[in-house]
Simulated scan of single mutants.
Amino acid sequence: MDTTRQQKINRLIQKELSEIFRKQTQQMRGVLVSVSTVRVSPDLGIAKVYLSIFPSEKAEELLENIKINVKTLRFDLGQKVGKQLRVIPELSFYLDDSLDYLENIDKLLGKENNSKDE
């Protein structure tokens, strides 16, 4: 269970990282990177960032590029939230595949409904 402070920092980091990714992906047509969830550790030293990347075929490649450039992203985040946070947490990025999971469930349910109609 996150404390109120953790929840506020989660939302702050999510908002600012979303803005950073939006600006960076503007040049890349047809690519969308959104920050679905941020979870900060109780000591506020580590932030796990879950990303949803569209199209999902490019997800692994983009996630690797993001992990390579994690220091730059942390610096950019520090420029934006430096006044609110004393220490900028270490960022670790993960792929949020929950949308793919939901899409797969929809496909399976669609197949089931089509077979019943026949």
Rank of each mutant, 00 (worst) to 15 (best):
I68R: 07
I68N: 09
I68D: 14
I68A: 13
N69H: 14
N69F: 03
N69C: 06
N69Q: 10
V70N: 00
V70P: 00
V70F: 01
K71I: 02
K71D: 11
T72P: 05
T72K: 12
L73N: 00
L73P: 01
R74V: 02
R74T: 01
R74S: 06
F75V: 08
F75S: 15
F75E: 10
F75H: 15
D76T: 07
D76W: 11
D76V: 04
D76P: 01
L77M: 03
L77C: 02
L77I: 02
L77Q: 00
L77D: 00
G78H: 02
G78R: 01
G78F: 01
Q79T: 09
Q79F: 01
Q79W: 07
Q79N: 15
Q79P: 04
K80T: 01
K80M: 10
V81A: 04
V81C: 09
V81I: 15
G82L: 05
G82V: 02
K83A: 12
K83V: 11
K83H: 15
K83W: 08
Q84E: 14
Q84M: 11
Q84I: 09
Q84N: 15
Q84L: 15
Q84Y: 14
Q84D: 15
L85E: 07
L85Y: 08
R86C: 04
R86A: 11
V87G: 10
V87F: 15
V87P: 08
I88A: 05
I88D: 03
I88K: 00
I88Q: 04
I88T: 04
I88Y: 08
P89D: 02
P89L: 01
P89Q: 02
P89S: 09
P89H: 03
E90I: 09
E90P: 06
E90D: 15
E90T: 12
L91Y: 01
S92C: 13
S92W: 09
S92P: 08
S92Y: 12
S92H: 14
F93T: 00
F93V: 00
F93R: 05
Y94E: 08
Y94W: 14
Y94D: 03
L95M: 14
L95H: 10
D96E: 13
D96L: 02
D97S: 10
D97Y: 06
D97H: 05
D97L: 08
S98W: 11
L99C: 08
D100I: 05
D100P: 02
D100K: 13
D100C: 11
D100A: 13
D100G: 15
D100F: 03
Y101W: 13
Y101P: 02
Y101L: 11
Y101V: 07
Y101R: 14
Y101G: 04
L102T: 13
L102E: 13
L102G: 09
E103L: 11
E103M: 10
E103T: 15
E103D: 15
N104I: 06
N104D: 12
N104S: 11
N104Q: 13
N104Y: 14
I105G: 06
I105E: 11
D106Y: 12
K107P: 04
K107E: 10
K107I: 09
